[in-house]
Simulated assay, not measured.
Amino acid sequence: MGFKYKNSDKITTLPVILQPAKNLINLILAFHSLKEKTFHRLQVNKKARNLQSKTYEKSNFYLNFLKSMLKIFLFILLLTNFSCGVKGNPKPPPSIAPKSVENLTIKQYDGRFLIYFNYNPLYTDDRQMKEDFKFIIYKNSKKFDASLFKEDNTYWFFDSIESKETCYQVQVRTKHKESILSKPVCIVGKAINIEKPKPLLISIVEDGLKLTIPENGTFNIYKVKDESDFYPIPYKKGLKEKEFIDTNVELDKRYCYYYTILIDDVESEKSDTVCQTFKDIFPPLPPENGKLIIDKSEATIIFEPSKSKDVVGYIFYKNSKIINNTPIKTYYFIDNDYKPGDVYYVEAVDKAGNKSQKLEIKE
């Protein structure tokens, strides 16, 4: 698609993108035609020789002017339409304002107010913040000098209990900008004293670590790195059962726990921390339904695999003598030196090296 214009030599089709220049081109051509006619008439009229020269020069000036304007117009048009990049509205400048704290939480804990929050340093346009920042704490709308503790992206501080309503807010501040204040969290202190809980009991079970609480009531369980560690956010909150199995454990890793007692939303001081390394001390289930198929001096041993999920292979015995020291993953075995009366045994081995009871297989 395009439109056509006529010059002195040929018909040319311009692309659609140049259509805005149509009127300007036609104007120049029309003026050029007028100039030629005017010049011709003036040339016939010898008496107006002086007028001819002036008119010609004037028309030639306007023609050159319009040609120059056309070149400028076409140059701007080409820059606009053929420039590289993605067209669209210009993007706003990147934000330098930090995001505000969104999950400020408060509770009465161990005879104090405990205020905590998580914070991932981002700007309001969700870009990662790479500059230094700090938190400004406000207590009842006034700046409050708090000792701030940190673990990973969790921050917390303590304050003394007050019987009247007390509200806290947090603001994030950088060198260039500050966030809006977080939503206030408020609390009224309660006169409740709870004795320190007795230490919980911890033991290894097949699925993980079993925690037994020697108290009655409602509990928060905390999972920490070592005996001296503290963390404000419960691992399990509001438990009423006295037993809990933590299945989120890995072999040969050490885990530490403590708990608190809850009464009317007031939390006791923490119990002593107990730790345990999780080890797999439980043997897998043995294989089942073994059969022996005899063909002259060749015996084929077949069986159904162990139902335990952590089995890595099987060890075979012939007349109580071990055949393979390393567990192999197979559900059959062939002995090319069978003699009547030979007895075979198969045991399952798990990831921790625990061995099942032996399955006896004989003719």
Rank of each mutant, 00 (worst) to 15 (best):
K10D: 14
T326I: 07
W156R: 00
I72Q: 13
S228Q: 09
G290N: 06
L211T: 00
F278M: 06
K351M: 13
I11S: 11
K37Q: 10
D125T: 09
S141E: 15
Q169I: 02
V170Q: 00
K58E: 05
T38P: 03
T124A: 04
D229P: 11
K71G: 09
P305E: 04
P98Q: 14
C167E: 02
F31I: 12
Y345A: 05
V266K: 01
E250S: 08
D295K: 14
Y258P: 00
E304M: 08
K130T: 09
N140P: 02
R127E: 07
D350Q: 15
D110H: 05
P327R: 15
L66N: 03
K67G: 05
N220A: 09
K46Y: 15
S228F: 08
F244K: 02
K87P: 03
Q357Y: 09
R49S: 05
P98R: 03
Y317K: 09
T218A: 13
T212A: 04
N216W: 11
I137D: 00
Y344N: 02
Y123N: 11
F333D: 02
L24Q: 10
Q43A: 11
E347C: 07
K22P: 01
P199I: 05
E165D: 11
G189S: 06
Y222C: 03
P284F: 02
G290V: 07
N336C: 06
D152S: 11
Q357N: 08
L359C: 08
E195L: 10
E298S: 12
K198C: 14
K10C: 11
A97H: 07
F82H: 09
Y155G: 01
L148F: 14
S33G: 12
E267Y: 04
K67A: 07
H40D: 13
P199M: 07
T174R: 01
V349F: 06
D272Q: 12
I115G: 00
F31W: 11
L209A: 01
E363I: 04
F65R: 14
S306E: 08
G353F: 09
N60K: 10
Y109T: 02
C186R: 15
D125E: 06
P232S: 11
N89F: 14
R112F: 08
L42R: 06
N248Y: 01
I281V: 15
T300N: 10
I187P: 00
L74H: 02
E102M: 13
F75E: 15
D110F: 09
G2F: 13
E227L: 14
V101Y: 00
F135P: 00
K198P: 03
V101Q: 01
S163G: 09
I187H: 01
T38K: 06
K198G: 06
F157M: 14
T218N: 10
K150W: 10
E360P: 04
I301R: 00
S53G: 15
P287W: 00
H32I: 12
P199D: 03
V170W: 01
G88R: 13
Y344S: 04
K67R: 12
Y5K: 03
S100I: 14
T124M: 13
